[in-house]
Design a protein around this nucleic acid. Sequence first.
DNA 1: AATGAATGAGGGTTCATTCAT
DNA 2: CATGAATGAACCCTCATTCAT
Lengths: 224, 224, 224, 224
Amino acid sequence: MVSNTAAKRALPQRARKDEDKEARRRFILDEALKLYESTSYGDVKMADVAERAALAKGTVFLYFPTKEALFLTLLEDLLFAWFAKLEGLLAQDAGEWTGPRMARTVAESLEGEESLTRLLTLLQTVLEQNVTVEQVRRFKERLLEAQLRLGATVEARLPFLRPGEGPRFLVHLHVLVTGLRQMADVAPVTREVLALPHMAPLKVDFTAELTATLVILLRGLEAR
Amino acid sequence: MVSNTAAKRALPQRARKDEDKEARRRFILDEALKLYESTSYGDVKMADVAERAALAKGTVFLYFPTKEALFLTLLEDLLFAWFAKLEGLLAQDAGEWTGPRMARTVAESLEGEESLTRLLTLLQTVLEQNVTVEQVRRFKERLLEAQLRLGATVEARLPFLRPGEGPRFLVHLHVLVTGLRQMADVAPVTREVLALPHMAPLKVDFTAELTATLVILLRGLEAR
Amino acid sequence: MVSNTAAKRALPQRARKDEDKEARRRFILDEALKLYESTSYGDVKMADVAERAALAKGTVFLYFPTKEALFLTLLEDLLFAWFAKLEGLLAQDAGEWTGPRMARTVAESLEGEESLTRLLTLLQTVLEQNVTVEQVRRFKERLLEAQLRLGATVEARLPFLRPGEGPRFLVHLHVLVTGLRQMADVAPVTREVLALPHMAPLKVDFTAELTATLVILLRGLEAR
Amino acid sequence: MVSNTAAKRALPQRARKDEDKEARRRFILDEALKLYESTSYGDVKMADVAERAALAKGTVFLYFPTKEALFLTLLEDLLFAWFAKLEGLLAQDAGEWTGPRMARTVAESLEGEESLTRLLTLLQTVLEQNVTVEQVRRFKERLLEAQLRLGATVEARLPFLRPGEGPRFLVHLHVLVTGLRQMADVAPVTREVLALPHMAPLKVDFTAELTATLVILLRGLEAR
DNA sequence: AATGAATGAGGGTTCATTCAT
DNA sequence: CATGAATGAACCCTCATTCAT
């Protein structure tokens, strides 16, 4: 989660201390998230974010050099928060797990994370476009590390996985999430068309489909 | 393939016969495709398409009511052409196939189809946005039918598939293609970052990864 | 009225005889009028007129060189038809009239002539813009003549009018009609505003206001 | 008058104080007016206004949300300035006036106010189209109030007017101005036609005709 | 650090009219 | 005469970002 009680405390008009600056930064992210939840990336205007954060337009740019940078940071926050959450779920039971249980755990951990998965969809297409190498590098660096750590945990829970297949599984997961989220979020016109009874086979339910696919995938890894 | 020798024959200044109109239509699509191949959707301007097709700006709109309609049609053409191609590949050997062979065949049939896979990525996000219900409906109708037919062929080749798993497999394929294409096409900044040696695990090769994942997926289906 | 039973008879596909051409011409005008009645000048497209007349777009331009020419002709037809109607009304009773009676007769003769009065509003602003000198000349020539004739009749009915004041009265009438029609046809937003109770003084009822003003005007002429 | 010496003072690059913003606003209006004086509404592009005001295109939209809003404001300024001017003229001699004197005073006060009268012509047709209810409401509110106040003054000067006929007279004036301005501003082609000697009766001189009509109108009110 | 005024590039689409067929 | 495909000019407004204050 991005939100943070510190951010809710009244901030001084000018954030002089690093601590205040960090709080303001997080507050901006929170407001951006709220906006994003109810619309699309394109519909969230930087001016709206500023207004909701009770700041001037220019001030937002003191904290985030570009709109993409802001949302990449937001994605980062949400993503690593989710990593931690999943880590927690996997830590609860250090015993041996089955593929289906892992599939379910992972898929369900993504329920309610619509903002995260929607942002993931924009990652290479939009968010990494207008951003500094430094930010991308830091992001990828953290991603790599998380992938290794979390991958290791997954491997520990699923003994049939060979070394390196834990991280690999997470890549597959990323692919599936990106693809499924896009298929699940259809345009209004499309929704109308898919409402026709015989169109049912083209409808996609994000969590159900993700679970099912992960189950098969893990079974495929176990089978070998 | 969209391109078509008929389109290359000199067209009369005014396409009055249906045949000529169809040729011009395809010609416009061809030119749009060429433009799209070397840039992005956003960078292709309708004015450019018109210019390349040696037509006035307004003329393009005589054939396609909106930019999205044009590109959705293009995607449609490429997609169903690829369906036919795959159908052909699967027809060559009516015997029994293995999962890995199917995976390879499918993944390789998508090599060189970068425009198709990139457009697939825009399907719900962009192309189905500014388009009539009718066009979407016709598209989905055709898609449904192709999915069933091609799915049946896949089922026929892979005896371990249960009824309905052929079409299902194609949905998974769609998801994977969408997800992988997006991960494989990285922004310039990102390319730079991923060029660092230790970043290798984050790099994704479209065909290789697609093949590998399909292999696992099919093994998972067979294992049951 | 523009409409004409001859126009309703089925026309041959090609109008070769002058008679047929004239019928087709009137038919086009009729259809344009129907369209104009339910929308605004800007919203009537030449393509719509052609379609309603079951003709090709280009064909309409064989009969009217420009959109303005078409509507100027339409206005002409409606205007001179109304002149005739008014002439008729004034002819019914060749005795002496009062100002108020004249005012009422004139104003009421314009009820239901909304298309005419609305077009009158466009006369110099729009219709006389993209039209040949010849058409304008013919129009003004006819107008002049009608003004003199009808003006004479008015003078005959209202003995208190001095020579030349009949035509003059018609000019005033033209001015009032143009001004009032514009004030009476308010934009949707304005309608909303004028719906407020205290805004009543700003609301204008075309016929009522026209009658009242003409009464005063004629009294002013009589008073002298 | 819109122009204002304050606007001529050099403005800081950024108008931060309300006073400066108001000055810039007026400056934009002034430049729009100059443009409008030498062409037509349709020929004045927002881009031109910006250029003449030495501002970026977008900046103009910071001050006026739409082109219509800008010109409605311009009309408002001109109109209420004229109201004040007329009020002044009527105040100079608090004695008793005659109808003809009032007619002349009013008509002459409109000489040189061509922009005002031309804009008045566009009021309901164009200006009130793409504008918020709020702006229209404020405009009508002011109009109502001015009509009442100025109407009262008129009534005071012309004792033969009954209560309420002052404001009423102003409505008539509005109607006449709108109608006459339109008849007086003829298209080039029309001017050519009306130049023919025998066409003289169709020519309209704005001020002369307005005076004459007002004289008659007032005489009509007095006569009763 | 904060503000918010200023910037300015960017682009699909309509439709009266023309003209090849 | 009729057709209808082709033309192409014309244009307001948004909004991320900058920078004077």
